[in-house]
Amino acid sequence: MALLTPRPLQHPFTLTQIRGLRLGQLVKVSGRVYTARDRVHKYLFDGGKCPVDLEDGAIYHCGPVATRKEGGWEILAAGPTTSIREEAYAPKLIEQYGLRVILGKGGMGPRTEEACARSGCVYLQTIGGAGPMLAAHVARVHGVYFLKEFGMAEAMWELELKDFPAIVAIDAGGRSLYRRIQQASRRVLRRLIEREEPFEAVRSGDADP
């Protein structure tokens, strides 16, 4: 199936390329991305000066484990953090900075979906918790910003990715795989609660001898 054949996605991302991605498409992301989680989002949202150029770029919701090595940094773990915490900030950042890609886990809410549709941005879900395996897709660390102010996990890391695995979970039309699955699961839950046999507290076999 074409959706499950990973499609290469190289920074800088073009609008045409991003609009051409279908919901559920597997991708391999290469090139520059910047990590940003709660502190960086709040800082930029409040009008703080962005030290890098994010246009046609990607933000990754990630707080890596990094160690210093000769001449720079080594990333030991680089899995995603839960994205929904940035729902209040993301729409403004997408539009203000011209972001094309957000990488994270767990999906985003309706405001981010709308912003994706308006400015042509996609949200990619990567594998939550898979820190070291994903770190193997970090080819190098270009630099780090706000390390002293925000600490290792909350700093803005400038990473060079190589074939980083992800899946298109919100497309540039604002369609969301999460929404579909969430709505379907809620319907199943109603059925499991209202129409299924209730659990019997006592059954003859339960009594201990």
Partner: peptide, 22 residues
């Protein structure tokens, strides 16, 4: 996803690194 998760478990074991960054 599950294959990625299992590959990660093996990777962490082999490289002696935290299996999740959190």
């Amino acid at each position: 996803f599950l294959e990625g998760i299992l590959a990660n478990v093996e990777h962490a074991r082999r490289t002696d690194t935290p299996l999740c960054q959190d």
